[in-house]
Design a protein around this nucleic acid. Structure first.
Lengths: 120, 120
DNA sequence: TTTGTAATTAACCAAAAGGTTAAATAGGAA
DNA sequence: TTCCTATTTAACCTTTTGGTTAATTACAAA
């Protein structure tokens, strides 16, 4: 069921090897062999990781002779960061305290815990 | 092989149902049944999603009578956003242009495409 | 043309993910 | 106690993921 772009991007980021590859690419274009070097796994395994990254839009590949250099495409990272951004206020501003207090009140006020409008 | 925290958080975010649940929780604490209501899937399925979210540290659960209200825990989102943040300059500042140009130069200059220091 | 290097594809495998239904557990209410 | 509601656990199934080795393709250079 064609997963949405955001899911594909987060899934691509959910693997340490792939995140490491992105770090490598943040310093410039690299060939597949160069990317594979630091990782303790076979070339085909890296090739699969690159395909995942490519499908997610996080990298692009050119063709130069027998090499297929990869380069970073950061645009999808902005989408990801924007999505997470909706929660910024939840970890900033130290309203965590207040929040906890309100949750506590709701939790003890009988019914499950409903929407704000019913909280009082 | 105990996956790192960041992988676990990104994996938790890589599912639209779970992201939707986080949106629901951003408006306040909710019971499992309340969270399940908008989703076209069984309660056990939602229960599994909640376990994934809990293990990732993105939600916490209390106990109130027979309900297990969930609430958002945004701290791991900050870690995620901080990691992605290293790439901010790659999508901002319109140095994409310059970047592409440099990549092009490297790609055509014979050898694969090595580190910056060898590019000239 | 032959040889060597870069990278992908094919075939396979085990484990994890995401869903189902049916059964079990926990606690409030009658 | 008995019954009802909330939620989880168990057992199962299918698809996806992440890895392997062996074979294949693509190209440059000798």
């Amino acid at each position: 069921m064609s997963p949405d772009r955001l899911s594909v991007v987060f899934a691509a980021l959910a693997d340490p090897t792939r995140r490491e590859i992105l770090v490598q690419l943040s310093h410039g274009s690299r060939s597949v062999t160069e990317l594979a070097a630091p990782h303790a796994m076979s070339l085909p395994a890296i090739s699969k990781h690159l395909r995942v990254l490519e499908r997610s839009g996080l990298i692009a590949r050119e063709r130069a002779a027998q090499w297929r250099p990869c380069r970073l495409q950061a645009a999808p990272l902005k989408e990801a960061v924007d999505w997470i951004g909706q929660y910024r206020r939840h970890w900033e501003e130290r309203l965590d305290r207040l929040d906890d207090y309100l949750q506590e009140l709701q939790a003890k006020s009988g019914q499950p815990t409903r929407r704000k409008s019913r909280a009082s």
